[in-house]
Design a protein around this nucleic acid. Structure first.
Length: 580
RNA sequence: GCACCCAUAGCUCAGCUGGAUAGAGCGCUGCCCUCCGAAGGCAGAGGUCAGAGGUUCGAAUCCUCUUGGGUGCACCA
């Protein structure tokens, strides 16, 4: 299905044949051999670097290898022309039928077109969002949620067995703060005026929690000591927060497979077991850390602590796992949690974190490296800031949650589809400008609109074809005369569309779902460009008088539509049938 | 002080984990426009890929250093 891979296989086979004939030395490493679309279309359909890569290890001149390889390749029925170019590139031109067949594959596979086996069924865990259960999700979380969800879909599409997971940070001091904040709202619900002290969460979203607490417990905790109500209020309000967060995620179209709780790790011995495992490796010791240089800590004093020798696995300094009061640091349950993921048999772990957690990457990688004995890679994607604008002006909203803009605010304003697409228009480690006005604009420089417009145009011609009595089911369209799609412009559009399976692999390998959005923008641009050509050249239009001709053209349109739908599905965006 | 991330056209950004003459949109300039679906189309100008070394057939891409920005740096998560 990935034509580039097919041709690469052919190239490697030819090289193998050349080796068995003695032209090339036996056992040459061919991993570096690539078959890619050339940047300049004038160079042909595909280019391979085989001759240059193998020149040195074989002791031959690139030209010699290229010539010999060229004559072998040209014997393949799919190859129309081969030429040696530049420093030793082989430029390949395929016969039109090789491209036209791709239209048939796309129609046959539907939105599964481009599915890859890259992941080989390996189990991958994508942990994302993991927002503290202390309030509604804000825009920063939103980007992480979208990137994580799209990455999970992408990896699934690329053949991995994916688990979406949320780690609830419900074990630290912040949930005590939440409980105390809820207590004030509980007092409020009982007719007292709340005292939202400095450091408590002031957001209105806790008002209903306070009311619910009153509903359940009446006034009986109003004068009770904190120790009586704190655990109860903590439990009650974290559950309320998690319900809210689940709702927020749902509004965005994100569904987690697993919610893991930090609190649940305590008292089970899991933290102790993880630390003991490290201790068994000689990676836990009692020691005193040096004070950080160049930064003045007024309350610094040397203390002996239980430390994890993370420097043995690439970290800069060793990290404490116990506080001076003997309790675990936040790092300890995190170690246990990742150990749990390793033990659940994942072959690859991915964490999506805010960029402000950058300092945390090395120690976590060190822990996973140690606990999995180097078996399980951990990739941590840091998500940069989202800057909000409205018509170019920095934008703040404070509807109901204090000072920050919530996920709900954004989704209510522009919809989940637009939100998701825009969040994926930049790579995760670059800051993103999100302009409320711009993302709803109907213009070329709004990528969401542009891709949806392409989708709508495809749907439109399909409707026209159906009205003209053409069977527009994929199965029927696949039977159309694809050989009629022989105009260079049509072949060019097919070539773009045929690049989709390759793009999936590239994006999946890099763990970068934003590439899918970028590709869809390019494909949409090509479709629109092709459409415009039809204005001057009626023969290129999708809508034709002759039913058989039209069926061929519609097959192409639908094939492009299939790719757009498949791509949007990965991004979690619903393709539109028509523009309103 | 240390670590991580970023730096590409006037602006906003792509750039295939090393490929050929570095791309797109906006803006600018000049033409064209009633064409399947309006919300335009075509063409042009615009670059020391922050700077300097290195690796190699080949570097925006990998390594080192420099500059400029962001983030984070026991015992909070």
């Amino acid at each position: 299905m990935n034509l580039f891979n097919d041709i690469r296989v052919l190239v490697v086979e030819c090289l193998g044949a050349m080796a068995s004939e003695g032209f090339l030395p036996a056992g040459l490493e061919t991993a570096a051999v690539t078959v890619e679309p050339p940047r300049d279309a004038a160079h042909g359909d595909m280019a391979t670097n085989a001759a240059m890569v193998l020149a040195k290890p074989s002791g031959l001149k690139p030209r010699e290898i290229a010539d010999a390889l060229a004559s072998r390749l040209s014997a393949d029925p799919r190859i129309a022309a081969v030429e040696v170019a530049g420093p030793g590139f082989l430029n390949l031109r395929l016969v039109p039928s090789a491209w036209q067949a791709i239209v048939g594959s796309a129609l046959g596979a539907g939105t599964d077109f481009g599915r890859a086996t890259l992941g080989k069924g390996q189990k991958v865990n994508v942990e994302f969002v993991s927002a503290n259960p202390t309030g509604p999700m804000h825009v920063g979380h939103t980007r992480g949620a979208v990137v994580g969800d799209a990455l999970a879909s992408l990896l699934d599409f690329a053949g991995y067995d994916v688990t979406r997971e949320y780690y609830i940070n419900d074990g630290g001091a912040q949930v005590d703060v939440l409980a105390r904040s809820a207590f004030e709202r509980y007092r409020e619900a009982n007719g007292l005026s709340p005292e939202i002290a400095e450091g408590l969460y002031p957001g209105d979203y806790l008002i209903p929690v306070g009311e619910a607490l009153k509903e359940q417990y009446g006034d009986r905790f109003l004068t009770a000591p904190e120790a009586d109500w704190l655990p109860i209020f903590r439990e009650f309000s974290t559950q309320a927060m998690m319900e809210m967060i689940r709702g927020d995620l749902e509004a965005l179209g994100v569904k987690m497979d697993v919610y893991s709780s930090e609190k649940a790790l305590y008292g089970t011995g899991k933290i102790e077991a993880a630390i003991d495992t490290l201790r068994g490796m000689g990676l836990i010791y009692e020691g005193v850390l040096e004070p950080p240089k160049g930064k003045t800590l007024d309350d610094w004093e040397p203390r002996e602590q239980t430390l994890f020798k993370s420097t043995a696995h690439g970290d800069d300094v060793d990290r404490p796992v116990k506080k001076s009061d003997g309790g675990w640091t936040y790092f300890a349950p995190d170690i246990a949690y990742h150990y749990d993921k390793v033990q659940r048999g994942f072959d690859l772990l991915i964490d999506i974190l805010g960029a402000d957690h950058g300092g945390y990457v090395k120690r976590m990688k060190a822990a996973v490296s140690a606990l999995s004995e180097g078996r399980v890679p951990l990739d941590i994607k840091l998500i940069q800031l989202v800057k909000l604008y409205k018509n170019g002006e920095p934008f703040k909203m404070s509807k109901r949650a204090g000072t920050f803009v919530t996920l709900r605010d954004v989704v209510d304003e522009v919809g989940a589809d637009v939100t998701r697409f825009v969040m994926l228009t930049r790579k995760n480690d670059a800051a993103l400008d999100f302009d409320f006005a711009k993302v709803q604009e109907q213009s070329r420089d709004n990528p969401v609109w542009y891709v949806q417009y392409a989708s709508a145009r495809v749907a439109s011609v399909l409707r026209k074809a159906a009205a003209a009595g053409i069977d527009t089911s994929d199965a029927a369209l696949a039977q159309a005369d694809l050989a009629a799609l022989d105009h260079p412009a049509e072949i060019a559009l097919i070539r773009k569309m045929a690049d989709w399976p390759r793009q999936v692999e590239i994006a999946a390998r890099a763990h970068e779902p934003h590439r899918v959005a970028g590709y869809l923008g390019e494909l949409a641009a090509d479709l629109h460009g092709h459409w415009n050509k039809g204005n001057d050249e009626p023969g290129l239009r999708f809508v034709q008088d002759d039913p058989a001709t039209m069926a061929s053209k519609i097959a192409l349109a639908r094939a492009v539509g299939v790719v757009i739908s498949a791509g949007l599905a990965i991004l979690g965006v619903t393709p539109v049938e028509e523009m309103r």
